[in-house]
Amino acid sequence: MFPIETISAKMLDYYVDRPDTLIIDLREPESYRKSHIRGAVNIPYEELSESPPLPKEKLLIFYCDRGGASMAAARDYVRRGYRTRSVIGGFGAYRGRNRTFSG
């Protein structure tokens, strides 16, 4: 069994701009374009298995709409030896200062 560590949406602000962290938005590109966490890369959940390898030296923080897909992604990557976190409640729970909006 691989324990999945979680963080609250409020804690995302702590990880933005950290060089040792990669924040991954698992939502569809349309949702990402409308609004996302500053610095997050968009890799839709359905495309994650086909994406290039993610950096093992970084902490991977996954978020989706509500948290289900991010838990699945974090579980998958922790099994492969990555350090991961899943955001509880997903992007819908985020109210921080690092939310970007399309203009």
Rank of each mutant, 00 (worst) to 15 (best):
92 G>F: 05
2 F>M: 12
103 G>K: 14
66 R>C: 07
100 T>C: 09
27 R>D: 00
80 R>P: 00
23 I>E: 01
57 E>P: 00
75 R>M: 13
94 Y>V: 05
83 R>L: 12
1 M>Q: 09
59 L>Y: 04
57 E>F: 08
56 K>S: 01
53 P>C: 11
71 M>Q: 05
80 R>M: 15
33 R>E: 15
61 I>N: 04
19 P>A: 14
79 R>D: 08
21 T>Q: 02
61 I>H: 00
66 R>D: 01
76 D>E: 13
41 V>Q: 06
48 L>K: 06
56 K>A: 12
99 R>Y: 01
21 T>F: 07
36 H>C: 11
76 D>N: 09
36 H>R: 12
16 V>L: 11
12 L>I: 15
102 S>C: 04
22 L>H: 00
69 A>L: 15
18 R>K: 14
97 R>A: 12
99 R>W: 02
97 R>W: 03
42 N>Y: 09
48 L>M: 09
76 D>I: 12
76 D>F: 11
26 L>M: 13
69 A>H: 06
29 P>F: 12
83 R>W: 01
54 L>V: 14
9 A>Q: 04
39 G>D: 08
43 I>Q: 03
39 G>L: 07
28 E>A: 12
37 I>E: 02
10 K>N: 07
59 L>A: 08
36 H>G: 01
94 Y>F: 04
99 R>P: 00
2 F>Q: 03
95 R>S: 10
1 M>A: 14
48 L>Y: 00
84 T>N: 04
90 G>H: 03
4 I>W: 06
59 L>E: 07
31 S>A: 13
49 S>V: 13
36 H>A: 15
100 T>M: 11
61 I>T: 06
8 S>K: 09
85 R>E: 01
84 T>K: 07
102 S>I: 14
46 E>Q: 13
78 V>H: 04
88 I>V: 15
67 G>Y: 03
57 E>T: 12
73 A>I: 14
56 K>H: 03
97 R>C: 02
13 D>W: 05
43 I>G: 06
65 D>K: 15
6 T>M: 09
88 I>H: 02
60 L>P: 04
95 R>W: 00
16 V>F: 10
28 E>N: 05
90 G>V: 06
85 R>S: 03
44 P>C: 08
43 I>N: 02
89 G>I: 13
77 Y>N: 06
5 E>R: 11
103 G>Q: 15
4 I>A: 10
67 G>A: 14
69 A>R: 15
67 G>L: 14
53 P>Y: 08
22 L>G: 06
69 A>W: 01
55 P>F: 10
9 A>Y: 03
44 P>G: 03
47 E>I: 11
51 S>W: 03
100 T>F: 04
1 M>D: 09
32 Y>K: 12
23 I>Y: 01
57 E>N: 14
41 V>L: 11
16 V>W: 08
93 A>Q: 02
58 K>M: 10
48 L>W: 02
41 V>E: 07
16 V>S: 08
68 G>A: 15
11 M>R: 05
38 R>C: 04
74 A>E: 04
92 G>W: 06
